[in-house]
Simulated assay, not measured.
Amino acid sequence: MTDHLSDTQLRAIQSDENLKESFIEQLIDDYSQGILWFTYTYVKDQQLAEEITQDVFLTCFQKIDQFKNQSSIKTWLYSITANRCKDQLRKKSLKSFLSLKREEQEKNRQDDKYPELILVEKLERENLANNVMALPAKFKEVIYMFYFEDMKINEISDILDVKQNTVKTRLNRGRNLLKKMYGGEE
C-alpha cells in the first residue's frame, strides 16, 4: 500500500463505504503489527496494547472523513496511536510486560539455523527489547519509531508534535543510555 493518497483517491474512499472498508482492512493488514508494538512500548501491557490498537483502527474508520491528506497515512495512524497511548497513561499507572510476538515471526524464518544460535539470538533480542523498554518514554518512543518502524526524523517530529532537533536529541540520548546499559558496547 502506498503511504500517500492522491486527493482523488482520498475523496473516493471518503465517499464510498465499500472502498472505505477495503481501505481500512488494508491499513490493518499493513500497520497493525507495528502499531501494536509501538502501543506496547507506551503501555507495557499486551492486552491493553491490543485494545488501543483496535481503537486506533476504529478511530481511523470513523474519522477518515476528517483526514486532510497533509501527511502520510502512516504518520496519521501513529499520531492517533501516540495520542491514545498518552491518554491511557494519564488515566493510570501500568505494569511492565514484554510482548514476544515478533519473536514467533523470527522463529519461523530461522528454522534452518542451529538451535544454539537461535537461543543466543533470542536472548540478545530479549535483552535489547528489555533495555529499550527500560528507557524513559520520550527516548523509547523515538528509538522504536526510528529503528523498528524505519520512520524519518520529520515523520517522528510530526507524530510527536515536537521539533526535529528535539527528536534528534532524544535519539542521541536514547542511544547513549542503551550504550551505558551494554557497558559502552555498540
Results as ranks from 00 to 15, higher is better:
Ala129Ser: 15
Leu128Ile: 13
Asn130Asp: 15
Leu123Cys: 15
Met133Trp: 04
Glu106Arg: 11
Asn131Gln: 07
Lys113Tyr: 07
Val142Leu: 00
Glu141Leu: 06
Leu135Ser: 01
Arg125Val: 07
Glu126Gln: 11
Asp112Val: 07
Val132Thr: 04
Leu128Arg: 01
Glu116Ser: 11
Glu121Asn: 15
Arg125Gly: 07
Arg109Tyr: 10
Gln110Trp: 08
Glu106Met: 10
Leu135Gln: 01
Ile118Asn: 02
Glu126Asn: 14
Glu106Gly: 03
Asn108Gln: 14
Ala137Cys: 03
Lys113Trp: 14
Lys138Val: 11
Glu126Ser: 05
Val120Ile: 14
Lys107Leu: 15
Glu106Asp: 05
Glu106Thr: 04
Ala137Ile: 03
Gln110Tyr: 14
Asp112Asn: 05
Glu141Ser: 04
Met133Ile: 10
Ala129Pro: 05
Ile118Gly: 02
Asn108Glu: 11
Arg109Asp: 11
Glu116Thr: 11
Lys122Ile: 05
Lys138Phe: 06
Glu116Cys: 08
Arg125Met: 09
Met133Pro: 01
Leu135Pro: 01
Leu123Gly: 13
Leu119Cys: 03
Gln105Lys: 11
Pro136Val: 02
Leu119Pro: 00
Lys113Thr: 11
Asn130Val: 09
Lys122Pro: 04
Pro136Leu: 01
Ala137Lys: 08
Glu124Gln: 09
Glu141Pro: 01
Lys122Glu: 14
Ala129Val: 10
Val120Ala: 05
Leu135Trp: 02
Ile143Tyr: 00
Lys140Met: 10
Lys113Gln: 15
Ala137Asn: 09
Leu119Gly: 04
Lys140Leu: 12
Gln110Leu: 15
Asn131Arg: 13
Asn108Thr: 11
Asp111Gly: 09
Leu135Cys: 04
Arg109Phe: 04
Glu116Ile: 12
